[in-house]
């Protein structure tokens, strides 16, 4: 539904703005590889897609490699351990995000050739030690009843930094 209504200044009554809303309903259709990936999450598995002819494993999986444009094959397990390639500690409440502070990490799962985003839990970083997260080992930890959604897992460090 798209709506437009005129607005008036509360004091003077002058017309000085128009309010509008723009809703475009979207139904995003996941790729075949992603559907299979979400199925794997329900089984507490992390899966990646191997790119034909290159040996490269992509997480999250895609039906084709965005870099080489080659198709990908049947999904293969990766992780659940991985290495943190970079991170940030979010201190602002962004739309749909969790309450801050929360640590967002990009983790290269063991066996994968890409890094994937996720939240790091269970670690209290001391100020001044933040950068020790880069290169740290971690593993994916699942909720008790995964729904087949990227929010089914988070990361925890294998050892404290």
């Amino acid at each position: 539904m798209n709506k437009t209504t005129a607005g008036h200044d509360a004091e003077s009554g002058d017309f000085n703005f128009v309010e509008g809303e723009w809703e475009v309903h979207q139904r995003y259709v996941p790729s075949r590889a992603l559907v299979e990936f979400f199925g794997g999450l329900k089984r507490k598995e992390i899966l990646g897609s191997p790119v034909e002819g290159t040996g490269r494993i992509i997480v999250p999986p895609q039906d084709f490699c965005e870099l080489s444009y080659r198709p990908t094959g049947p999904l293969v397990p990766v992780g659940p351990g991985g290495t943190i390639r970079s991170f940030t500690i979010v201190h602002s409440r962004f739309a749909n995000g969790p309450p801050p502070p929360v640590t967002m990490v990009f983790v290269q799962f063991d066996g994968a050739d890409t890094a994937s985003p996720g939240y790091l839990q269970g670690t209290a970083l001391q100020p001044g030690t933040e950068l020790e997260l880069i290169g740290a080992r971690c593993r994916a930890v699942f909720v008790d009843a995964p729904q087949g959604d990227w929010r089914d897992f988070w990361f925890e460090l294998e050892t404290e930094v």
């Binding site: 798209n2 437009t4 005129a6 128009v18 509008g20 723009w22």
Partner: peptide, 14 residues
């Protein structure tokens, strides 16, 4: 038809 948002908001859309 979400294209209603193409018209100017002051004269045409209302």
């Amino acid at each position: 038809d979400s294209r209603s948002i193409q018209a100017d908001p002051f004269h045409d859309r209302p």
